[in-house]
Write a protein that binds this DNA or RNA. Structure first.
Lengths: 199, 199, 199, 199
DNA sequence: TGCTAATCGAGACGGTACGTCTAGTCTTTTT
DNA sequence: AAAAAGACTAGACGTACCGTCTCGATTAGCA
């Protein structure tokens, strides 16, 4: 990461300077990782990026917008297709948890959720993003339906919501280190239910 | 609410003044409801409560502690016992959602979750609280087990976690107005699973 | 004084705004005059000047610095040259006392001395200022020396110190209304001594 | 000094406890010496003296009252009588400077002067004290008058004021280390004047 | 001898100010 | 036109003191 490589980054004329944008995003991510959401201020990002605050405000109207873009950049697209819905969902959760754990994404997304609790714009963006994820994750269920593995009248988005909820709550309560057995158990409850005769 | 009833609240000796404590909690709740989490500052609470800032800091070391106590005060203890696990869980979610919707509890709890993302102490408190809720909510599942309605090897706390996750995510994404049919569908997925042959 | 003329004073770019500086100095003087040294707080000055506290702290690191600048602004430069050392010194004291009495300078200088008793920086500044005044006031003695009116080996700065001391103590003990006869007597003691045969 | 000897000093009935008074005065002096005027707060004194704040406020209505009593306790009474007015005054200044330098009296008196600039009661007390000192110091001049060493129409109090002023200003500007030659020169200017023919 | 009354340490109270931090806006200068 | 730079008002942060208050314990002197 070259966020310190340019000791004086100037304007490149009457258009957005991609170096500045890049430097700001990199700096924002670094600040978030190093100082946490509590230390994540526009001031701190500007300082770290050697950028003026107005430059940040020009392109990202709010902290939430910045967070959202950082999160999008580091996004991992992954919906496994093992031919078995349980394995698919367990794999999804496993890879999501490790992605959140091992990259800055976890911090970023936590911050985004936190920000959404005070900033309506962030809330809207997050709701939209979440909805999008439902249909994305829902594809796993749809594939299972197509295979006849899942009842056709199942609301795929709702199942995706359930699974996503579980992930969110673990993220928000610092439980991303859950072992695979637990994840599998949770997924199995959703897939097979908890009734005694269901197996 | 009688937050303006006492035009001069003095010390009552070398011990905590319950009137002040009460006034502060009431004011905190009012500020949170009226100005939202963004406007929830210790300054604002002190102003509203006609209290000195040090008085607040003396008894609540952080915003999180204040939020937690407000939430505890307004807590609703409710785990229905209809003799049917699905109805129990649906009832639980319905009453939780309406409680969150219709009282200040929703705002308070959202704020608490947000606060926990930047304040480690709040995070710990929230994690502890959440764990406590799991065993509480888990009693519904345990009762169902005792009735033979649910498999004995089911991890009641994990099921509670799943149900609670669903509630959290709806709270955090402003979807507390979900209709009963959707809640029931979600609960049914957990109870009966989503497999086609499961019934 | 036009301290209320600008209901919204903004930045004028990446450099000091002289309007703000002026407003702050005017407000500081007004606060000092109206509320006295006891009521002279940075908060009060900021409030009165409609300025942010950081703006004050940016340019004046301490109350003392602010006081010093106010005092310098209202400085009266006056070392009479009547051709007679006694008249010069009496005139100096008279005009200094009336300046202190009739403008805010008296309050400002008193405050500065008080501040210097707790703030080492203020103490240093005051000591430096005082030394400067000695050589300034000393010029009256030097002129008298040149006229042959005063012994050539007299330490002009020390005499200035003596005269200045007298002024300070009167300022600090609210005795700026001393009549001219008394001032003249004091000056005469320094000029002619108190011995019976000295004239 | 036994300020730490009593780990629990109680009431001795419906009257002032001299132990408490003593402990408070000792503590006040210690705080002033160790932390300076800036750190001299009633809180700090109470803490140091293991006394309740009301106990202090009961007997000393203000910081100034406390300072005044401390100063009085440590007072040095000294007006040399060498038979020579110049030597008397030089001796007076020398012993005053060393007293201020080597005991806590200097800090105390400085603080008292500073306090008098914001507290009218302290100002009045200081003015009264100062006046008393004039007549006390004036006795040296009166003695010299009686010896015929000083003109009979000299205003002894005014001369005392001049000498005292010199001492005050040196105290207030941290110049208590002035060498004897300078003190003598200053005294000589007052005694003999600065005119060339005066010797 | 028991009651009253003032004092003690203690520490909470409503406030104000401290000096620092960030928010979001503004203007100038440079490219 | 957009960049950096950094100043601007505004206000929150958490801490220190202010001077007042009430407690419970203590003890002398009055009844």
């Amino acid at each position: 990461m070259a966020e310190d490589a340019d000791p004086a980054r100037k304007s490149i004329g009457a258009r957005r300077n991609p170096d500045s944008a890049e430097a700001i995003l990199v700096a924002a991510e670094a600040v978030l990782v190093e100082a946490g959401y509590a230390g994540f201020s526009i001031e701190a990002v500007a300082r770290r990026a050697r950028a003026g605050k107005p430059t940040i405000y020009r392109w990202w109207p709010s902290k939430a917008a910045l967070l959202l873009e950082i999160y999008q950049r580091g996004k991992r697209v992954d919906s496994p297709d093992t031919g078995n819905i349980e394995d698919d969902l367990v794999g999804f959760l496993k890879s999501l948890f490790s992605h959140w754990r091992e990259t800055s994404s976890g911090s970023v997304f936590r911050s985004l959720i936190a920000e959404a609790q005070s900033d309506p714009a962030a809330a809207a963006a997050l709701a939209g993003y979440s909805k999008g994820r439902h249909s994305h994750t829902g594809q796993m269920i749809e594939r299972a339906k197509a295979r006849g593995e899942v009842a056709v009248d199942v609301d795929a988005a709702l199942v995706a919501d359930l699974i996503g909820s579980f992930a969110w709550k673990h993220l928000l309560t610092n439980r991303l280190d859950e072992d695979e057995a637990t994840l599998r158990r949770a997924v199995r409850y959703v897939v097979q239910g908890i009734l005694p005769q269901s197996r």
